[in-house]
């Protein structure tokens, strides 16, 4: 899922304070799962903004709405009946959701209320960790299902650096060394020959190295 964290309230207030009516829009997908921008977080932020602005002697009308999926234009259409009553939109979705609203309602200022962080998985209740950087050319089959691009601080492709100590990364003892994890897993699978095989220099053109990416499925595209 795409993970996110709410921005500091002060930063959000600075965005919405000049407006009288604000439409606060959440998303029922990734940001709901990582407890950053779902219906509940929309309620908490609306309540918080109301109280914080009240103390500054300002009164901003905040209308709450949570869409099924904010990065999908057909769901964003739901806002048609609400958008005219708003001077600005505050979005609690990831950057994709914010941009979908900004693209649909060109005359409305749109502000993000969360910082989009990374593509991650849930490690345990309340803990999400980065697992994928969307490089566009997946290597997980060679590396025992552990990604050296998302989980190694140096994105090394052929074994650990000299900073790997007792299974931890030199940047932080609480961060696992991705290559230690890969080695342990390859050993457990009896696939250590994968480790010896050199992975060639990564071609980053499949990642962000070649500009913004797009997928076109001709059988589906209209």
């Amino acid at each position: 899922m795409i993970t996110a964290e709410r921005k500091p309230l002060e930063e959000i207030i600075a965005c919405v304070a000049p407006f009288r009516k604000v439409l606060l829009v959440g998303c029922n997908e990734c940001v709901t799962v990582c407890a950053a921008g779902g219906r509940k977080e929309v309620g908490l932020l609306a309540s918080g903004l109301h109280m914080a602005l009240l103390q500054q002697g300002k009164s901003v009308e905040i209308r709450e709405h949570t869409l099924e999926r904010q990065c999908d234009p057909e769901y964003v259409e739901e806002l048609n009946s609400l958008i005219d009553g708003a001077d600005a939109v505050l979005s609690m979705a990831c950057g994709c959701g914010v941009q979908t609203i900004a693209g649909r309602y060109k005359d409305k200022p749109v502000f993000p209320a969360v910082n989009t962080k990374f593509m991650g998985a849930s490690e345990r209740q309340g803990v999400w960790a980065e697992r994928c950087q969307g490089c566009g050319n997946c290597l997980l089959g060679q590396t025992g299902g552990i990604c050296p691009i998302a989980r190694c601080a140096k994105r090394l492709m052929n074994g650990p650096c000299g900073g790997s100590t007792k299974g931890s990364c030199e940047i932080d003892p609480d961060t696992d060394c991705a290559w230690q994890l890969i080695w342990d897993r390859l050993k457990a699978l009896g696939l250590t020959e994968n480790y010896v095989e050199m992975i060639p220099a990564k071609d980053w053109r499949t990642s962000i190295g070649n500009g913004p990416r797009k997928i076109i499925r001709e059988d589906l595209a209209e």
Binding site: K40, S47, H50
Partner: peptide, 11 residues
């Protein structure tokens, strides 16, 4: 008791 109940009580 949800975070929302606590915050709303103050509001």
């Amino acid at each position: 008791v949800d975070a929302l109940h606590l915050v709303k009580a103050f509001e």
